[in-house]
């Protein structure tokens, strides 16, 4: 699975990168994925799978998907 972390979300992963490859054995919910990566759900204002916005709750993803998370960033 490919993961894209927008803006300051990269800060939460040890690699501090925007793009990560995460091997998945089987389908996983977005909430489980966040827990694995230690990404706080409160910082996710937008989640998208393969370019379509999805709710954080009740969304499953599998290997091969592109998952994007973006935080609630303000003006600039």
């Amino acid at each position: 699975m490919r993961l894209y972390l927008g803006s300051y979300l990269s800060w939460y992963v040890p690699q501090r990168l925007s793009r990560l490859e995460i091997p998945l054995a089987g389908p996983i919910s977005l909430m489980e994925l966040l827990a694995q990566l230690k990404l706080p759900p409160a910082e996710i204002s937008i989640a998208a799978v393969n370019g379509i916005l999805v709710p954080l709750q009740d969304t499953q993803v599998s290997d091969g998907d592109l998952v994007e998370f973006h935080p609630p960033v303000g003006g600039g």
């Binding site: 894209y4 927008g6 803006s7 300051y8 979300l9 990269s10 800060w11 939460y12 501090r16 910082e43 204002s45 937008i46 998208a48 916005l53 994007e68 973006h70 935080p71 960033v73 600039g76």
Partner: peptide, 23 residues
């Protein structure tokens, strides 16, 4: 600090992909 770190590493251009994903 995530927000300050982000300003240093990505700066304001980091906003583009966020706003685009949000439509």
């Amino acid at each position: 600090h995530p927000q300050a770190w982000d300003m240093q590493v990505k700066g304001t251009p980091g906003l583009l992909t966020v706003l685009n994903a949000a439509g």
